[in-house]
Design a protein around this nucleic acid. Structure first.
Lengths: 222, 222
DNA sequence: TAGATTGTTAATCGATTAACAATC
DNA sequence: TAGATTGTTAATCGATTAACAATC
């Protein structure tokens, strides 16, 4: 392993969740040890990449056996912060915002949605699961008092930028953007933005399908 | 521009939706021409990257003026297939599946959700917006008759793999996976899988926040 | 022991950035 | 015209893959 505090390369971070879910599958299947090759095959990577990636973690494999699955799960979960609880708020109580508020997956992975906000007087005060929809005016107070780290943007694209600024000013440290628009974060508000890219993923998918079809046509001609 | 049929590098494809949303913002703001520098500033890229990326498209800029915004939007929308309609089905009529079925954004961007499926007899037959929840048994028939291209997996992680295979066997060409698990696609079923990574994005966000905080601590000590 | 598998170094590959002649 | 901006080539940077000595 490298120094504990050093940042992992970005592509590695993006693969860690894959390793984690795979390790959990293996635990469920009562597998004790796993080789880099077998992880690679399962996740569509090369064994080199797997070994390089895991060498960043506080973990060492054993010749001839590979990595201990339980330890692997433990170390990945810690690196990803799945052990500590991250408090979140959702802004936008539309279909998507409410669905995420009710998403049981989040809390089991350490993300605690502790409030949901909207600016529509019609819905303010109504309930979404265990939460009551609150007005935007309450945002800053809740973020401060509950020490909320993450804001989830689930509003229409046209107002996503405004909401992003409100969240960052209220004091959240990171934003998950579900809207199909790029968020510009002024340098004085140091919040990290990650895009959920649902629609962008669909476009990427449509593109891949089209190109694959074009490739198949070209291949059949040759 | 390069040959029309050639595949774009993957990082470029992932940036195209950013360019597209930006171009649309500019149209709304009545901006006619835009330089690579200004696009770069807005999206947090370098002007070199922007020019390289756009050079893949059927578009040429003009010295001293830049790119024509309307043409840019047009070309990007075409490349991303936002012009043609892509038929989708959703499997899983839980909170997330239903929210996506009701997502107005999809249809305005060319993705037509034409059916939603579930295997829970309790919900089969009930309505979600203009759709009626159908049993899994109807999947293959609907995919064939409606020529569905894309399957959206909105079921719990434990059954996502099974559903992925059912969708691919039914004949969809691509899968958007919303579950927090890696999907393995057998080589004989040539469906493309793209992960929506909602939970993985939250983990990535939590990681970035933590490392940024660690960096700030380290910097303040020096 | 023999052979499988790690950890790590070096080579390759690909993406981003810099630089600059062409040009409007 | 002068100067801003493109399109493209070359340089740099970083990530992936290959290779292999160490080792269990």
């Amino acid at each position: 392993m490298r120094s504990r505090d050093s940042k992992l390369p970005f592509p590695v971070i993006r693969r860690l969740p894959k390793y984690l879910t795979h390790a959990r599958e293996l635990i469920r299947a009562n597998v004790d040890w796993i080789s880099s090759r077998s992880v690679a095959d399962a996740l569509g990577l090369t064994s080199s990449t797997v070994r390089q990636d895991l060498s960043h973690l506080d973990l060492t494999g054993v010749s001839k056996r590979g990595y201990e699955v339980v330890r692997l799960e433990r170390v990945l979960a810690e690196e990803l912060g799945a052990e500590t609880e991250h408090r979140c708020v959702i802004v936008g109580a539309g279909n998507l915002g409410c669905a995420l508020a009710l998403q049981g997956d989040f809390i089991t992975h350490g993300f605690d949605v502790c409030a949901i906000f909207d600016n529509n007087p019609e819905v303010i005060g109504t309930r979404v699961g265990r939460l009551t929809i609150r007005p935007m005016e309450a945002l800053r107070r809740v973020v401060r008092s509950r020490k909320v780290e993450i804001g989830i943007i689930a509003v229409p694209a046209l107002v996503a930028q405004t909401v992003a600024l409100q969240l960052a000013e209220a004091g959240v440290k990171g934003l998950l953007n579900l809207a199909y628009v790029h968020i510009r974060m002024p340098a004085d508000l140091d919040a990290v933005v990650v895009d959920a890219r649902i629609l962008a993923s669909l476009q990427e998918l449509a593109y891949s399908i089209r190109k694959r079809a074009a490739g198949a046509r070209a291949a059949s001609k040759t």
